[in-house]
Simulated scan of single mutants.
Amino acid sequence: MAGVEARLAELGITLPEVAAPVATYVPAVRTGSYVYTSGQLPFVDGALPETGKVGVGEGLVDPQTAADYARTCALNALAAVKSLTGSLDDVVRIVKVVGFVASDPSFTGQPGVINGASTVLGEVFGDAGVHARSAVGVAVLPLDSPVEVELVVELRS
């Protein structure tokens, strides 16, 4: 497979600038051959495209739209990884994805929402993008974001 950077270009994906932290933390930390990202919100040009709970019904964020936001979160997380490594070509594999979905109490489709992140990681990394995962429904997320995603990534030593 071509390098990850070439694959991003093939897919027409341009990673965003790393989102500025909204509290006291850093976007990602490298320890040994692993990078752990902080939870990434679906910021686009520094702003959330939508806020609120995910579910079906008036006034709720549509689950498919939320899946698109999870994809954006994953790309924001990759930008945080790249900010530490200089290139995503050093990624051996995506080890784990943790996704949080601000959910209406009756909504149980969190795995489908977080598939937005998992799918794009598979498109970018192929077999190296297959990962362990948690998809968790929560009452509320920072800034009333509908989704948040964090990654654990293994790098070449």
Rank of each mutant, 00 (worst) to 15 (best):
Q40V: 04
V56G: 13
V136G: 08
V54R: 11
V81Y: 00
A74M: 02
D104N: 13
A23E: 12
L48W: 00
T72Y: 04
Q110M: 11
D62C: 02
T14Y: 06
T37A: 01
T14K: 14
G109T: 09
P21M: 04
R30H: 05
V35M: 00
E150R: 14
V4C: 07
E10G: 03
A77G: 02
C73V: 03
A66Y: 01
D89K: 02
V152T: 14
V101C: 10
D144W: 09
F125Y: 09
S87Y: 04
G59L: 10
A139T: 14
V61D: 03
P142G: 07
E123H: 05
T51H: 09
V97R: 02
G129R: 05
V149T: 10
P42S: 08
S103N: 13
T37W: 00
V18H: 05
A67T: 05
V152D: 05
L60I: 06
S134Q: 15
L155T: 00
V26S: 11
T51G: 06
A9V: 10
S145N: 06
G129V: 01
A67N: 09
E150Q: 13
P27S: 06
S38T: 11
Y25K: 03
V44M: 13
G122I: 07
R156C: 00
L84E: 03
R133L: 11
T24H: 15
